[in-house]
Design a protein around this nucleic acid. Structure first.
Length: 453
DNA sequence: TTTTGAGTTGTTCGA
DNA sequence: GTCGAACAACTCAAA
């Protein structure tokens, strides 16, 4: 590299891709050579669960492949690392895509207050959080009106992946790729931009048109499974929106993308709701403390087949079907009377698509304390949900071997089957009807006009 | 300011 | 077995 050449740093965070990455193009446009870097800070290295770390390790390798081995991967404090890179390469700027999640915001503020200027282009969303507002310029608190406003907002045009990116040489000691592997017996889906596009193509061909009808069926591959790719920015939601086409299936899928954007917007305006109740009065409800029943929930041993299948899927795949996420969440909150945060934290530990906005607010929605506060009577029946969304028991059979010998009819209610417990399936830890009534009673106590309030 | 209509995803009970 | 009604009260968004 000649000393006269101009260099910019491109800091990869939640955008591990080359295609449709305007921030990367901005970095390239400004310089003769770029310094592509992923910084492994403590939050990822220490706090992330095994699954997420394994997925990330895979994704970084794939990103490096597409950069022909030019990616820097450096562990440590972003301030120190960026400063050192700036000095070493005489880099004039640091380019990023804006990060809106609470941790990312705090990290970037720290970097900037240390005197390192970040040039932001784009975000992980089609419409950046904060952009969609009501006419009085306050944020939406209900999904449907948000969706209407979001739909007409528009987003930037797609941009192609750059060809022949000129990069600085990378030293061997700056190639600190983690060797994280998923635990034995765990099969994570492939990470990386290429895998994301292959999955997207497959989904469009095989499932998108029936998405409205099939997305809820747990035993079928009716969902896109793009959530981990979106979480790491291996594909951008704009890319998905641009390729959707017409019809009911695409329309429902578009709405799912909008949910992701809505929750990012809600969290942006209410950054404490990763832990705190969006509807504060729910903080006053009576809850139980996590104990043996919580452990049974975590381990997929509640004695409710559909719930257990889902929890075991999470622990085998690092992913859970959307329908069953709601079922297990409802079970934790309404049947076990635990605070939603216990479940949300557990999900964050295991999910490879651990999006903090979608996770926190998905949980709060189920608990009834989130946006669009659910009607008091929305308490999922774990048995009926199984019969409705896994009629033939394929999903249960796949993840709960102790129940494989049961017929389609028996498998949802092993307690009524003569051989239901033949292979050691655990008995039910609660009676659903009883706990449903208990939940309704506790909800009564926090009614706005109740004497307690 | 007031009013009106609406709000992702459900369950149970009784006819 | 099927089907429609009932199930709180509250807040939000927009007219």
């Amino acid at each position: 590299m000649s000393s006269a050449s101009k260099r910019s740093i491109f800091w990869f965070r939640r955008d591990l891709r080359l295609a449709d990455n305007p921030a990367l193009l901005a970095a390239i446009a400004e310089a003769d050579e770029i310094v592509p870097v992923f910084i492994m800070d403590e939050a990822i290295a220490k706090r992330a669960g095994d699954f997420r770390r394994a997925y990330l390790a895979d994704s970084l390798r794939k990103l490096d492949d597409s950069l022909n081995g030019g990616l820097h991967v450096i562990s440590g404090d972003p301030v120190k690392i960026l400063r050192e890179l700036q000095t070493r390469f005489d880099a004039t700027s640091v380019h990023v895509a804006a990060d809106y999640a609470p941790y990312g915001v705090a990290r970037d503020e720290k970097v900037e207050s240390a005197g390192i200027e970040l040039t932001r282009t784009g975000s992980p969303y089609a419409v950046a959080p904060g952009r969609v507002q009501k006419s009085d310029e306050t944020p939406y608190r209900v999904y449907t009106p948000f969706y209407k406003a979001w739909s007409i907002h528009g987003w930037r045009a797609l941009v192609k992946a750059p060809q022949d990116i000129a990069m600085v040489d990378v030293r061997e000691q700056d190639r600190q790729f983690p060797n994280w592997k998923a635990p034995t017996g765990v099969l994570l889906q492939s990470a990386g931009e290429l895998a994301a596009h292959e999955r997207w193509k497959k989904f469009r061909k095989e499932a998108l048109n029936d998405y409205d009808k099939q997305r809820n069926l747990a035993g079928i591959d009716g969902t896109s499974r793009l959530s981990p790719h979106l979480r790491w920015g291996e594909i951008h939601p704009r890319t998905l929106l641009a390729g959707l086409g017409e019809g009911e299936g695409p329309a429902v899928f578009r709405k799912e993308i909008a949910w992701r954007e809505f929750y990012a917007d809600v969290l942006h305006h209410n950054p404490l709701t990763t832990r705190e109740y969006y509807a504060p009065r729910f903080a006053n409800m009576r809850y139980d403390e996590p104990g043996e029943k919580f452990t049974a929930w975590c381990e997929g041993k509640t004695g409710f087949p559909f719930v257990d299948a889902a929890m075991r899927q999470l622990r085998v795949e690092g992913w859970m079907h959307n329908r069953t996420r709601m079922v297990v969440a409802s079970f934790l909150v309404k049947d076990l009377h635990l605070e939603w945060q216990h479940g949300a934290n557990f999900f964050m530990k295991y999910l490879i698509d651990n999006d903090v906005a979608s996770n926190s607010h998905g949980w709060q929605w189920t608990a009834g304390c989130g946006t669009d506060a659910s009607p008091y009577y929305r308490i999922f029946n774990p048995i009926e949900q199984g019969k409705r969304f896994d009629e033939q028991g394929h999903y249960i059979r796949k993840f709960v071997p102790e129940l494989r010998h049961l017929s389609d009819q028996e498998i949802h209610e092993p307690w009524d089957a003569p051989n239901g417990y033949l292979h050691g399936y655990p008995p039910r830890i609660v009676d659903h009807a009883t706990e449903r009534n208990e939940s309704l009673a506790r909800l009564q106590e926090i009614k706005v006009d109740s004497p307690e309030n």
